[in-house]
């Protein structure tokens, strides 16, 4: 296990208020970034009892959706450059979206450019089907992911 925390003292931001959507009968019901953001904002950080939203790892603007082509792109920003948790965060995002979106969506998860020391390899790892599957086979990793997804420490 790691000795000490990677980012011992992260900056915590305020939570944005959730907007209750008023659904007009003729409103546009296509999937939009806010839909996705609402799902993933509450994922807990692997290290701290704060949500990804609070740590500003994610924002609504960092998510793009193309409903017609079924593409979802999430770009997240690790709190520190050398964050080894980046892959865990990405894994959490992937697992959550896999559960809550129909399989025909193609989900791309990336760290935002310049935010990570090892950007390329992290991106590669996160979007490699085999490696994701392998990672989820690992019971320790799986437990960590589930803790992040279903934690009610927040």
């Amino acid at each position: 296990m790691t000795l000490g925390l990677i980012n011992a003292n992260p900056v915590v931001h305020a939570k944005k208020e959730r907007i209750a959507r008023t659904d007009y009968p003729h409103a546009d019901h296509a999937v939009d970034p806010l839909d996705i953001y609402d799902f993933v904002r509450d994922i807990r950080d692997p290290e701290h009892p704060y949500s990804l939203e609070q740590l500003s790892v994610l924002s609504e603007e960092s998510i793009t959706v193309d409903d017609k082509l079924g593409l979802i792109l999430i770009t997240f920003t690790p709190t520190v450059q050398h964050c080894s948790m980046a892959t865990v965060i990405g894994l959490c995002l992937r697992v959550k979206l896999k559960h809550y979106f129909p399989p025909h969506y193609k989900v791309d998860i990336k760290v935002s450019p310049g935010s990570h020391a090892d950007e390329e390899s992290v991106n590669k790892q996160l979007n490699d089907k085999e490696r994701v599957a392998a990672a989820l086979e690992n019971p320790n990793l799986r437990q960590l992911v589930d803790e992040c997804l279903y934690s009610n420490e927040l």
Binding site: D23, D35, D146, E147
Partner: peptide, 28 residues
């Protein structure tokens, strides 16, 4: 994959409810 947002939201809650009681994942 419903075309209405409200249905999708309910579906997510439903999925979570049904998936959680049987999965290996722990509830904290």
């Amino acid at each position: 994959d419903d075309k209405k947002r409200a249905v999708r939201h309910e579906a997510v809650k439903c999925r979570q409810a049904w998936a959680s009681f049987a999965s290996r994942s722990l509830r904290f």
